[in-house]
């Protein structure tokens, strides 16, 4: 195993951590595990591919377009998921609605990029640098830094700002929050938008290095979900740690044994962790809903 594998793992881990964070952000006020979350990764990757690789425009344009598109996607997702969930009343409504949303986005991406195998634009910063004999690609370093900044920023936002406090209150009890005058509906919409933007940025940064195909959204959701569960759903720090564990475990096992054993290791780890710690490594028990 080369030390580069660890760096690759940390890089992949920061992508999963961002997805996990987004899942957590949506989960907290809505109690919904959004199976469509990973589709935003594809959105980010597709935007980068379209703008950088095909249109030959700069990364600044890409970032702007991605954020706008992702915000729209978040708004759309909120309608697509929350409306059926509210109107249905079935206890399984959330999973069906989010899976349906995932299906819809997936088929849209498939239709738009029908002959594209991998959405792979050029990296933001080409090349790499050497630290103590280990080659680190700039793109990987950049992604890890962005992930850390986003995590820290969201943690700060959650703890320090009024809005953050409102979100935390909503996470505890949305009914009580309504009584306290917190605009729960607005917070739900905001959560979907923030979640989609974060995930799309992750996808945009990951695309030059990781394999992202138009139909791989669900895989990113599942990996991100694994990260969130390992870290304990509901905490940004847990998402970070969980993401890193998933990423490193995946790449290291892959480079040691090879092939898709990496996936196997990750899901086996998820199963074991859930069996031994039914509420994740750092989380509080998630009540059944």
């Amino acid at each position: 195993m080369s030390p580069e594998a660890i760096i690759d793992g940390l890089f992949a881990g920061s992508v999963y951590a961002l997805v996990a964070l987004a899942l957590t952000i949506v989960f907290q006020p809505t109690r919904i595990m959004n199976f469509a979350q990973g589709e935003a990764v594809i959105l980010g990757a597709a935007a980068a591919y379209q703008i950088v690789a095909l249109e030959k425009l700069g990364w600044v344009v890409t970032l702007g377009v991605t954020i706008v598109l992702a915000a729209l996607m978040g708004l759309l997702m909120e309608r697509m998921i929350m409306l059926p969930v509210r109107m249905s009343g079935s206890r399984y409504a959330w999973i069906i609605a989010t899976l349906a949303a995932a299906l819809i986005f997936q088929s849209l991406f498939n239709l738009a990029f029908i002959d594209v195998d991998a959405l792979r634009p050029n990296p933001v910063i080409a090349g790499g640098f050497q630290v103590a004999g280990i080659t680190v690609e700039w793109q990987e370093a950049l992604t890890i830094v962005v992930a850390l900044v986003v995590m820290a920023g969201y943690d700060l936002f959650l703890r320090r700002s009024v809005y953050g406090r409102a979100i935390r209150a909503t996470a505890h009890s949305s009914d009580t929050s309504v009584l306290m005058g917190i605009p729960v509906q607005r917070i739900v919409v905001l959560s979907f938008v923030i979640g989609a933007v974060i995930t799309a940025v992750a996808g945009m940064l990951a695309a030059p290095v990781i394999f992202v195909a138009p139909a791989t959204g669900l895989m990113f959701t599942i990996k991100g979900f694994t990260a969130a569960v390992i870290g304990g759903v509901g905490s940004p720090r847990g998402a970070l740690v969980g993401g890193m564990i998933v990423g490193v475990l995946d790449t290291v096992v892959r480079s040691l044994v090879g092939g898709s054993v990496g996936n196997f290791a990750v899901f086996a780890a998820l199963a074991v962790i859930l069996v031994v710690f039914p509420s994740g490594l750092f989380g509080k028990p998630m009540e059944a809903h």
Binding site: I222, T226, V229, S260, F267, L274, A288
Partner: peptide, 23 residues
């Protein structure tokens, strides 16, 4: 496992079955 986590364990189990099939 409670309701949601049961779903997630079955999801993991599903992926494991597929991986076993591949390997």
């Amino acid at each position: 496992a409670t309701y949601l986590y049961f779903g997630m364990i079955t999801l993991a189990a599903n992926l494991i079955v597929i991986e076993v099939g591949r390997e």
